[in-house]
Design a binder for these strands. Structure first.
Length: 224
DNA sequence: GCGACAG
DNA sequence: ATCTTGTCGC
């Protein structure tokens, strides 16, 4: 079964046992390097749930580094898989892929409202989506899922490494705004942690959340 | 066994 | 994520 094929695992309900097997199989395929490609378009992806079985995905594409809005795409459809910590991909990615097909232009880098490799099996949604779309992605979560870390300093740009039990760094707790709760950045796919943090800060000029993700969040329908 | 647990 | 008002602090 080709799990990177949309029809391979994203068009049906996936249970915990199968989901974990898929993640273990795909995890080794994540590319943790940055190839220095030109980033002219950076996008944000988010999903809102109007009802328990309905998912509304939104994508907001911006120019980079100017951060001017280029285009948006939205798609609402039924979601078959319930939310289970560690298996978020199977609930949100189907709707995101359908919205993705509606985009007219290309995307150089995609920011996701989730973790990347800072995940129990090193395959959070940002990594999974990056593998499926075959583009660079970054995990930008608002709360931790796993790992150990210290509280970063109070200034914008202050950070602290997120490490697994073996001591390996799997992400960065990053303060994107002075004295505001930090976010959790991790490699999604086709990028390294240093560049991931750099791109997140460059696309987060004022608020806690990056411009692409804030727009995606709004477009998806969330009131906050 | 118990608690934690992206969105 | 969602149910939901006002309120405290910069």
């Amino acid at each position: 079964m080709d799990y990177l094929d949309i029809a391979g695992s994203m068009d049906r309900k996936i249970g915990p046992a199968e989901g974990i097997l898929i993640q273990r199989e795909l995890s080794p395929l994540v590319d943790r390097k940055w190839d220095k490609r030109k980033v002219e378009r950076i996008a944000g992806a988010d999903v809102h749930f109007p009802a328990r079985d309905q998912a509304r995905a939104a994508l907001a594409v911006f120019s980079f580094p100017g951060l001017e809005l280029i285009e948006t795409a939205v798609h609402q459809s039924a979601c078959l898989t319930p939310y289970i910590p560690g298996l978020l991909s199977f609930r949100e990615i189907p709707a995101i892929l359908k919205a993705w097909k509606k985009l007219q232009g290309s995307v150089s880098l995609l920011l996701c409202d989730s973790h990347g490799i800072a995940h129990p099996r090193r395959l959070g949604m940002a990594s999974h989506l990056g593998l499926i779309l075959d583009i660079p992605t970054i995990g930008c979560a608002k709360s931790p899922l796993c790992g150990i870390f210290e509280e970063p300093g109070p200034e914008r740009g202050d950070r602290a490494p997120i490490r697994d039990k073996e001591g390996f760094t799997i992400g960065t707790v990053l303060r994107t705004r002075q004295r505001v709760k930090p976010i959790y950045v991790s490699i999604g796919h086709k990028i390294d942690l240093v560049h991931a943090v750099q791109f997140v800060l460059a696309s987060t000029p004022r608020y806690r959340i990056s411009t692409p993700l804030r727009w995606a969040h709004r477009l998806a329908g969330s009131r906050t």
